[in-house]
Design a protein around this nucleic acid. Structure first.
Lengths: 228, 228
DNA sequence: AATTTAATTAAACATGTATTTAAATACGGA
DNA sequence: TCCGTATTTAAATACATGTTTAATTAAATT
């Protein structure tokens, strides 16, 4: 058996980006906070190609700066990633947790608050679903441990407990599992958000806006969960 | 502001794997088909760390062989990936499509067949949900175009049409969107399969087996979709 | 039996990436 | 005004990866 010798593989060229070739040296006093700019640039790159696959050069280039800057401010690659997580990601989930903790109506109200909360988060932070898929859902993702250890006790476990209680009180279909209901809830909110670029293309669905999506999701959940 | 000099970052060591140090040269006549072994090894690695992130050396090591072997059989990295896709991935989705095409009952039967079909696929090919998340759901994934161009017309579009028809006949809740219903269906099947390692840990849910999961999913969908 | 061909390894090569070092420049306080 | 320090770049270093080449061994063919 002979192998083919096909030297195709057209490597896509990076855009040159026309850098102003700034000379080394301390910047003028009115220059912006570079650390924050670097975190912004990192987040943009992480959402675009993933944390693991983002070269430091890409972040530096996005910020119009040298890779050595990243080491100056963050030490090394993993500490930069950690900084992005704790300073940009955790606060976002923390606010959703706060919102849900303050919702103390029935199950339908809790679910509506969750669906609405995800909608708000995704609108404010369009990079989040991408990052969530890549760093939590993917095996070996950088944020999975963080989810399990820090976010899960505050959010999914709390939701499961409230579903279980409502089920004992006969207000949730007995054929459902309270824990799987949390999984279903995420599969009907975060997953559609993450997959939106795909299903919009497949179904040519530019007419579906956030309100339509929310209406569909709540219709499915409200009927699906309620007792007969 | 001074940066920290923290030279921690304990790099996890690869297992040496105790290679028998075979000498070069053509193998004995009764040796197995290496091409198939290489495809197997590639699939294992792809599911574990992703197609893009898998070094050829990892595949070679998994198969107990030299990286040059991969070039001998497949030419280069992208051709190896293509071979895994067309020879291992497409047939699996093709079989699901066949199954669903032959299901011509009402909406509930179609949905039950889909849920059951995903369950079978995931049982037979545990690597699939991982790969699906990483290569389809992730932006820039190697299989997204494939899904949109080759799988979508045969599966999701067909499902959406059948849902729309049933809805016109008054057998599906009018508040739902037929296209989003396909998204929901995947969010309630493939997504829970892909996330199983996570939610099993979070909820300590080793007691939930395939039948329980299917029961939950169908209960939610049957009630959620039906008209009042 | 001799020769060609197929399958395999070891080693070299080219490229890209994270990281370190040295130098340059401006700020801030003495 | 002068000097130490903070912030930045350019260049050097070290290592991993995809790919190629030459050598080696067994099968296949004559």
């Amino acid at each position: 058996m002979n192998q083919r010798r096909n030297p195709s593989a057209p490597a896509a060229k990076r855009r040159p980006r026309a850098q102003p070739k700034r000379a080394p040296g301390r910047p003028l006093a009115d220059s912006p906070d570079q650390r924050l700019r670097l975190l912004d640039a990192a987040l943009v790159c992480f959402a675009r190609v993933g944390m693991a696959a983002t070269p430091l050069r890409a972040i530096a280039s996005e910020a119009g700066v040298t890779p050595a800057m990243l080491h100056y401010y963050f030490g090394d690659k993993s500490q930069l990633q950690q900084a992005v997580i704790t300073e940009r990601l955790l606060p976002t989930f923390g606010r959703l947790r706060e919102t849900l903790m303050q919702t103390d109506g029935d199950v339908a109200a809790l679910i509506a608050a969750f669906v609405r909360g995800i909608e708000v988060i995704v609108t404010e932070h369009p990079w989040l679903p991408s990052l969530w898929v890549r760093e939590v859902l993917c095996e070996g993702g950088a944020l999975r441990e963080l989810l399990v250890n820090q976010i899960a006790p505050a959010l999914p476990l709390m939701l499961a407990q409230r579903f279980a209680m409502a089920q004992r009180q006969g207000r949730v279909n007995a054929d459902l599992d309270p824990r799987l209901l949390v999984v279903s809830l995420i599969g009907l909110t975060m997953f559609p958000a993450a997959g939106a670029p795909i299903w919009r293309r497949i179904f040519d669905a530019d007419d579906i806006d956030a309100a339509t999506l929310r209406g569909h999701t709540l219709a499915l959940l409200d009927r699906g969960i309620g007792v007969g």
